[in-house]
Write a protein that binds this DNA or RNA. Sequence first.
DNA 1: CGCGGGTTTGATGATGCTCAAGCCCGGTGG
DNA 2: CCACCGGGCTTGAGCATCATCAAACCCGCG
Lengths: 196, 196
Amino acid sequence: MNETAYKNQLADYIAQRIDITPKEREIIANAYSIKTFKKKQFLFEQGHICDIEAFVVSGTFRIFYVDTKGLEHVLYFAFKDWWAGDIASFNSAEPSGLSAQALEDSIVLVIDPTKKEELLKQVPALERLFRLITQKHLTVLQKRFLLTVSANAVERYNELIKRSPGIEQLVPQHQIASYLGILPESLSRMKKQLLK
Amino acid sequence: MNETAYKNQLADYIAQRIDITPKEREIIANAYSIKTFKKKQFLFEQGHICDIEAFVVSGTFRIFYVDTKGLEHVLYFAFKDWWAGDIASFNSAEPSGLSAQALEDSIVLVIDPTKKEELLKQVPALERLFRLITQKHLTVLQKRFLLTVSANAVERYNELIKRSPGIEQLVPQHQIASYLGILPESLSRMKKQLLK
DNA sequence: CGCGGGTTTGATGATGCTCAAGCCCGGTGG
DNA sequence: CCACCGGGCTTGAGCATCATCAAACCCGCG
């Protein structure tokens, strides 16, 4: 894979969702830059301004929040063809409440707020794209929230495995526990119990 | 208040967020219809398709989910100048996972999916508006989710009171409990404890 | 080979649920 | 105007789930 291939991946992703001209494909490709991240490297960090929005070309990130007691809570995992960022910080230039860390060597396309505004002016059709993407994110988070308040850890675990089969090969168990909202010890015990 | 005043309220809300021409104000006003709801009446119901998106002119709604055990979970309250709807159902025409019920006599402006698409074609600037609104909703829900998984009921209660002072005058206690993700009994005990 | 992070196991405890009963209070009808 | 009804709030006792603290284990990597 080379630079052009990465940018085609993004352009294809977009073309599947809205109509764009070849000219617009090119403008979009030029607006984003390629960045690579080694395993454990941070895409952005809680407490700092998150001035990037990233499209994951390959690899995986965990996006998480560290609470006042120092505990980490995974908000979501960003896989290939997903987005990673903190909208609140990106749009307001206030310190981010989230961190994003590579779980393996990864490649992303990034854009900063200024460039994104320029891009939206040049290609207004993208307003619609980002509206649709944000709506999708909102519905996913809404389901996740309602599942979290209505189901216990076992049910949430089963739901995760059903929705993301193979995730246990990709993500260490203590981070799955963090995603489920329980401690690693609890997940370990739970899995033992499920083998009964 | 009359029909024009209601529609001006929406147009003003929009004008505060994006630039629109007088002509566009009028198109927007014509796209929405006025509906009134008596206390306890449903704006939309779980299991049915939610083919409306509502702007609350006056009054309050609770938007909630009934889980598989029959327990209700309030996702959010929609006050004056807020939106109420189920994006997932509205956009996909699939049965809604949420219900919305008036907590008092209320007035809303509603639009259906077809009319909304028409409106977006006639006033493309609204793509941006709805992107910004959805982003705002997403950041609010994100904070709510992270608070829910990282803080206990007392902390969540204090946060709610701080963010929405006066809510206890407007919303019955068992629905505040539902919003907090605990049972009415637990909230009652909690408040007694806080008076120590 | 030994270090260190991740996982497992155990004992104990806090938080909030379940089930059950009583109470308060506003609305309704006689 | 009062009696009754019913929903919502309170209180209590016991319980389930998951957290906490602590120790042992496993295993890849330097």
